[in-house]
Amino acid sequence: MNNEETTIPKPKLQIYWQGLHVPFIAPWSNERVLPGTIVRRTGVGGTGIGYADELSHADRRRGVLWVRQSIAQGSGTPALGEVHPLRQRQAMHHMLCQVCGETTYNADFARWGERHLFLARAPRGRPFSEGEQTSAPPVCLPCAHESINTCPHLRKGYTAALVKYAQPWGVAGVDFDEATLRMMPMPPKQHLKVQIDHPRERWTLAMREIQTLHGVTPVDLVDLGSTLSQSSRTELP
């Protein structure tokens, strides 16, 4: 088990850029994807891709190879709308707010019957469904309200839900050809989704962790905020 899975997250430094609160999971221009020679590697579970200079404790999680990207949060210009692979993975695993990076195991979590708040774009108003796949970490209530007022994508429509638990499903990333070890072509800004233990998992360079949501209750953020401003005895849906 690696340090990422055992270390208790510390409070995160809040970073602003041109008056905007930059999400914890957003990458910065000086956080560059690091080069790594892809080779064929055989190990426990079979054959797949690996790095020629691979460090198992840093380059893999659950046996899956991950893209390497440097860490220089706050340096340069933020790439709003994009995701830093390590911080996304940390936020998903530890249930950290994707905006402020703080734990969502907070007072609201307890008030909501031990449930986390998830938020997503929904220009057509489609709500979260039971078992929904997502690569978006949870969000705390203050950051949810901040996001729907400042994020241009969310202003076009959003959906929110309280979720009892999130279960690891797989990863999203780039697929490699078994014979040539070259990246398989994909549409721009799209990644292959691979479930845990699928044969293609060992040939995928992961960029995001995907989880499925369970115990899903769609909520309205305005109602949720007003409910919490009333007596703590108020029952939530």
Rank of each mutant, 00 (worst) to 15 (best):
F176Q: 01
Q190P: 02
T234L: 13
Q167W: 00
T47G: 10
V44D: 06
K12W: 07
A110E: 10
K193M: 12
V163S: 08
R111P: 09
G36V: 04
P35L: 06
H94L: 03
C143S: 08
P127W: 01
S56V: 08
Q98A: 09
D177Y: 12
T134V: 11
P78G: 06
A122C: 04
V171R: 04
L213S: 10
R124K: 13
I49S: 00
R202Q: 15
G36A: 14
P152F: 02
Y158M: 07
Q90E: 11
V22S: 03
V139K: 01
C97E: 04
A79T: 06
D53F: 14
V83T: 05
L192A: 10
A91D: 00
E31M: 00
S226F: 12
R202S: 12
P35Q: 07
T7I: 12
E178M: 08
E102N: 11
H84I: 02
S29D: 05
S129T: 12
R62I: 11
G19A: 09
V171T: 04
P27V: 00
A136D: 09
L80S: 06
T7Y: 00
H214E: 02
G157Y: 11
P9E: 09
T204N: 07
R87P: 00
Q230I: 05
C100R: 04
S70W: 06
A122L: 05
T6F: 03
Q18F: 05
G48W: 02
E146P: 02
C140D: 14
I8P: 11
A144T: 05
V139C: 03
E4S: 13
A160H: 06
K156H: 06
Y51H: 11
K12N: 08
A166S: 15
M184C: 14
R121D: 12
I8V: 15
H57C: 03
P123W: 04
E178T: 12
A79I: 08
E201F: 04
S56W: 01
Y165W: 15
L20M: 11
C100D: 11
V216F: 03
S56L: 15
A172Y: 01
R40D: 12
E54A: 13
V44K: 13
W112V: 02
A26T: 11
G50Y: 14
V174E: 11
H57P: 01
D223E: 14
K164L: 14
A120H: 07
V67E: 09
Q98G: 13
L65P: 04
G74Q: 02
P185W: 01
A160N: 08
T6D: 10
G125M: 02
L181E: 03
H84A: 01
S70E: 05
A144M: 08
L20C: 10
V22D: 01
F176H: 05
G76N: 09
P137C: 07
